[in-house]
């Protein structure tokens, strides 16, 4: 990958933050939702065990 790709005609300080911010936000949202789901499943398992 050559240097001009990263420099993007001098617009790199606008382009890369846009991509990083978008992908980072999507990644964080994905991790958060997955963790919440696992937490809920774990709680349900515990409650079902207690009930039995």
């Amino acid at each position: 990958m050559n240097e001009s790709f990263w420099i993007m005609q001098g617009y790199e300080i606008y382009i890369w933050p846009s991509y990083v911010l978008t992908l980072l936000s999507l990644g964080l949202l994905f991790v958060h939702s997955t963790k919440q789901s696992q937490k809920a499943k774990k709680l349900l398992k515990q409650l079902s065990k207690t009930k039995n």
Binding site: Q9, Y11, Y14, I15, S18
Partner: peptide
């Protein structure tokens, strides 16, 4: 190249 921001 600034147009690439359009894709996000």
């Amino acid at each position: 190249d600034a147009v690439r921001i359009m894709y996000v």
